[in-house]
Amino acid sequence: MALLQAQLWVGFVVFLRVGATVSLLPGFGERTVPMRIKLVIALAFTLIVAPAVSSAPPPATAGVIATLALTETLSGALIGLGIRLFILALQTAGAIAAQSTSLSQILGGAAIEPLPAMGYVLTVGAIALAVMAGLHIKAAQLLIHSYTILPMGFFAGGSDVADWGAAQVARAFELAFVLAAPFVLMSVLYNLALGVINKAMPQLMVAFVGAPVITLGGLFLLFLAAPTMLAVWLSALDQFMANPFGPAP
């Protein structure tokens, strides 16, 4: 009986960190996923992670429970936010690409979060690709490894978290611009060509002539570049999952 109570106590403490991470995990923590399904997923991850946790939590007292509820939830949220930034990077890249190709208003409200069509397509494709590539296995390994970096009952210092968070946000924006770079380059070339044509033929309404060109060009470029964009994004995500608290590459 005492052994069972000890195992349940360990499982509860692990669930605090796992639940916070799962709520932000791409695919599993989306707003479209029902809460009951998220709870089942969190329990499944807990059953996987708990046996691998070597350190046992201290005896359950009111102070210990409050401390663990705070530290473990914050640790799980920190891990989940680091992963979630990759989805935000992809959404930002889609917004940049859509603005560059005059496609920002097409199907902008199709998702729960108002996204341009490009961002929505890239996000759905990236989540599907990440899950097919074993996101659940990598997440379980990351959660197990997190107890080495963030021990149970302890939390990193505020300055360390701030520096890490700033580095992750900077990496997310860098990744977003790298992914959207072909569309930005195409937009610059398009506007330069439009300016030259307008200078050569002032009577021609170049805006009306060029609008279909940039729209078609943006869709065609998305067709060509999407596989490479998703491959680069998945590689960056894998690097983070393998070493989440290391220096950004």
Rank of each mutant, 00 (worst) to 15 (best):
R84F: 04
T101H: 05
A193H: 01
A42G: 12
L88I: 10
P34D: 05
V131L: 15
V161D: 00
T46Y: 06
L142F: 03
L216C: 06
R31E: 06
A167E: 11
L43F: 09
F173T: 13
N191F: 10
S104L: 13
L150K: 00
L192M: 14
F15V: 00
T123R: 15
P57R: 01
A128M: 14
A89I: 08
L192H: 04
V121R: 15
P247K: 01
L70K: 09
I144D: 01
R36A: 15
G246R: 08
V14F: 03
P151T: 04
L221P: 04
L24K: 09
Q99V: 07
G80A: 04
A77Y: 07
S104I: 13
L3Y: 10
S102C: 07
Q203M: 12
L142S: 06
V169Q: 09
I96C: 07
M229E: 00
G19Y: 03
I197W: 06
S23Q: 12
P57W: 01
A181V: 12
P182D: 10
V49K: 03
A60F: 07
A139F: 07
V22E: 04
T92K: 08
F155P: 00
L68S: 01
Q239K: 07
A130K: 02
A93S: 15
H145I: 00
V196H: 07
V161L: 15
A66G: 00
S187Q: 14
V232Y: 02
G218T: 04
V232T: 09
A172Y: 11
V178E: 14
Q168V: 02
F86G: 04
I144L: 09
L216V: 13
L81I: 10
D160V: 04
F86Y: 14
Q91G: 08
A110G: 15
T215W: 00
L192F: 15
A181H: 03
F223K: 11
L43C: 04
R17E: 07
G165S: 14
P114A: 15
I112L: 15
F240I: 03
P151V: 00
L74V: 13
S75P: 01
P58V: 03
L81Q: 06
S146D: 04
L90N: 02
M1K: 11
I96P: 04
I87R: 06
F28Y: 13
L135K: 02
L204F: 14
V206R: 02
Q5C: 02
L24D: 03
P58C: 05
L224Y: 10
A130E: 02
A167K: 10
L68G: 08
